[in-house]
Design a protein around this nucleic acid. Structure first.
Lengths: 140, 140
DNA sequence: GCTTGCTCCTCTAGTCGCTAGAGGAATTAG
DNA sequence: CTAATTCCTCTAGCGACTAGAGGAGCAAGC
């Protein structure tokens, strides 16, 4: 069984060394076995698992979700409804965030469009910030 | 001069009490004067300033930007170019975030669309997460 | 005057997902 | 054998709060 050190795992999975230790501490990676000199050793399964984690993080899944996805991935006979549900929740979350940001975008654009590059005294941006009533959004 | 307590300021500006203290500590609000019993007292100007801060936060400006905007708002004769620049930077930031989220959204949607509700063994979601090569995005 | 209950005070720690740095030990290359 | 590199643990920091402990001040009702 060939084993690799944490730096090599870091390179193979494109995850920084301290992040790997952080994932171990958070229980996403099993506690690594150690050499005599107390250094962590890893194998091919760890590379796969860490790549899975990294990819899920890139897609914006949070650590709790990833923990659940990893657990599920280890039970290949179970129906994938739970996996689906996690992804669906995440999609809904992303949609929410896009919607909120799109609203903000419209506000900021509108402020900028109204600003006529004069003095701060008559700057619409400052006025809108100062007086909520002047503003487009109503969500409070 | 009528003064109000922190709880009343909290209600009038819709900002929670600990958050007001936090803003004071971060220098967005001046250090409040105190009663004999060491309680903070506020006036109308504080209500206006805090509402400005809250509104800017709702629009997603970060505290450093708000600090700058508050400074600028106090110099009404200056040209509003700097105000504009801050808002413009913020707009660009929001656009970035929307773009990234839109990319993620497409990924997640595509995974979900490919999942045929079978077992985890053949779940496309798990497969895509496990193998980066299967994935749409290329940004790494 | 006294108690009850609310508001306020300070201080610390927790959230999320890392990242950075200190200070030291182990390994590897030359 | 030494120098460079990699690794170890531990602590603290980011942003913008939020939550809670433990205690003091204050207004209203009896």
């Amino acid at each position: 069984m060939k084993t690799i050190a944490i730096g090599e795992l870091s390179r193979q999975a494109s995850v920084k060394v301290p992040t790997i230790r952080f994932y171990e501490e958070r229980g996403l990676l099993p506690r690594a076995s150690r050499t005599e000199g107390n250094r962590r050793t890893y194998g091919a399964a760890d590379v796969r698992r860490l790549r899975f984690i990294r990819h899920a993080r890139e897609l914006g899944f949070e650590i709790e979700d990833i923990r659940a996805l990893l657990d599920l991935a280890e039970q290949p006979e179970r129906p994938c409804g739970e996996v689906d549900a996690i992804a669906r929740r995440h999609l809904a979350d992303i949609d929410d965030r896009i919607a909120r940001l799109t609203g903000l975008r419209a506000e900021i654009r509108s402020m900028l469009d109204q600003c006529s590059q004069g003095r701060i005294r008559e700057c619409r941006i400052v006025e809108v910030l100062a007086d909520h009533g002047e503003c487009l959004h109503e969500e409070h």
